[in-house]
Nucleic acid binder design. Structure first.
Length: 438
RNA sequence: GCGGUCAUAGCUCAGUUGGUUAGAGCACAAGAUUGUGGAUCUUGGGGUCGCGGGUUCGAGUCCCGUUGGCCGCCCCA
């Protein structure tokens, strides 16, 4: 038994684990680049106040925070949004717009572990700054969907549930609610899926029994599953100018996603309002279709946050995908594939004199970018062939006494099980030819 | 922070009412095998039975505590 373990909630990545993670990162990067997003990064350690400013004091319980040797209160980053708001806000006037940025980074939260949740995890974050209209949401939701499809996931595996906090505000205001009451109702909406009618208890404790019309209005809204139904619901409740304005935004957003051929991935569902209250417009979450896992990704519009954290006012939309739930889903669907770490060439070496000759070629081939491996210790030929096959290499180069006496090296195609001799001077060219022929 | 459950080899697990030196399969290593493949056979290394205490002549087994894993609640930026 090992004397030391990882801290609770932290993970070791053995090579086979890291290969999977690297593959996930690689596909995220590729996808983001194909959408014209550029990558940035920020420090792992930030001033504690950065997170207090965004989320309030109560956030501290969920942070890895401490006082550093200079007496500064600091925290390991629990999310990317405040940091990226700082970056963008500081150069808001100098950056060409729209600003399309992404990052892949590790985050830390002092929380109890659960399936799909640990104390450290990676997130892909993507944000669009400087674009107030739903064009930004179109781009981001399309990116989110492609970031899943890149792994082979389809509309049968996941969907993006789309909602609108701004519309909720207009709708609840029309039902006679003031702002504190609206926030309380939204809190209940967030819990409704899990807790049913108990979700409204908090509201009733603060503000007294809910008017039957209000409750029915909320439940009606929660039942909406299509844009047509949404239009109809707002019509019958006498749409205000604010609601009409939101409907126009919805039309544009859904129209754009439809034109990209993504309608099957998008589900109107006003039950998604997202936990913390800084979202100001559209909000969305990606879920697996079977509903067995935690949310795969989530995001929305936060037009006020850059101003609060970064200095300059700047409209913004963003989302994050976590690595843990996605990895669970990929495993479940048999879609997790690691990057091959097999060598291209495995050298089979007779003895010490042959080893010298092999080393010259090994060194040259490696310098040319081929992945080359060989046994470190003298080993029987039979074992070496087995090792070559086990390694996953495509070809074996055989440096035996007989071959070197004839001035050749034998090259074996491990897949085709064919062999050919090459003069020692031509080995490098022969290897190159083999791989270029593919 | 709360509740449930579990903890024996790198992995998956056996281990009888408490009874000798704690086992198997897989994996790993060596040999059979001094030049040709994912096989077979033989052999080997690897354990403070999570940790600490208690009961007992005797504890992997029973009791208490503790740490950690998993699952759920709270939370989920």
């Amino acid at each position: 038994m090992a004397t030391f373990q990882t801290l609770p909630g932290f993970r070791d990545f053995y090579p086979e684990d890291l290969a999977k993670r690297t593959q996930i990162f690689r596909l995220w990067r590729q996808t983001a680049a194909s959408f014209g997003f550029v990558e940035y990064d920020t420090p792992v350690l930030e001033p504690l106040d950065l997170y207090r400013a965004k989320s309030g004091d109560e956030i501290e319980g969920q942070l890895f925070s401490f006082t550093d040797k200079g007496g500064r209160e600091v925290a390991l980053r629990p999310e990317m949004t405040p940091s990226v708001c700082r970056l963008v806000g500081a150069r808001a006037n100098a950056l060409k717009r729209p600003i399309k940025w992404f990052s892949i980074a590790e985050f830390y939260r002092y929380e109890r572990m659960q399936k799909g949740r640990g104390r450290c995890f990676y997130q892909f974050n993507a944000d669009v700054f400087g674009e107030p209209g739903p064009e930004a949401e179109i781009e981001l939701i399309a990116l989110l969907i492609q970031c899943m499809r890149a792994f082979g996931l389809t509309e049968k595996d996941f969907c993006v549930r789309l909602s609108d906090r701004d519309l909720w505000f207009h709708y609840l205001a029309a039902l006679g609610q003031d702002e504190p009451r609206i926030r309380s109702v939204l809190g209940a909406v967030d819990k409704y899926e899990r807790n049913g009618h108990d979700a409204f208890k908090g509201y009733e404790e603060s503000f007294g029994p809910m008017a039957p019309g209000l409750k029915q209005g909320v439940l009606d809204f929660l039942g909406i599953r299509s844009f047509g139904a949404l239009e109809k619901a707002l019509e019958s409740s006498g749409a205000s100018a604010g609601m009409a304005g939101r409907l126009a935004q919805w039309r544009k957003l859904l129209g754009g996603l439809g034109a990209m051929g993504l309608s099957d991935f998008v589900q109107v569902d006003l039950g998604v309002v997202r936990g913390l209250a800084y979202y100001t417009g559209f909000v969305f979450e990606a879920y697996d279709r079977r509903g067995e896992l935690r949310a795969l990704a989530g995001g929305g519009r936060y037009d006020d946050l850059v101003g609060r954290l970064g200095g300059s006012e700047l409209p913004a939309v963003g989302f994050a995908i976590g690595d843990m739930t996605l990895a669970l889903l990929l495993d479940e669907r048999g879609l997790s594939a690691a990057i091959s770490q097999a060598p291209d060439v495995y050298c089979i070496v007779g003895g010490e004199p042959e080893r010298k000759a092999a080393f010259a070629d090994i060194s040259r081939l490696r310098a040319n970018g081929y992945r080359v491996d060989y046994p470190m210790k003298e080993m029987a030929f039979g074992k070496q062939f087995k090792a070559a096959a086990d390694s996953g290499a495509r070809i074996a180069l055989i440096y035996g006494t007989d071959e070197l006496a004839r001035g050749v090296v034998k090259m074996r195609d491990l897949g085709g099980r064919t062999e050919r001799d090459f003069p020692t001077s031509e080995v490098e060219a022969a290897v190159r030819e083999f791989f270029e022929a593919r």
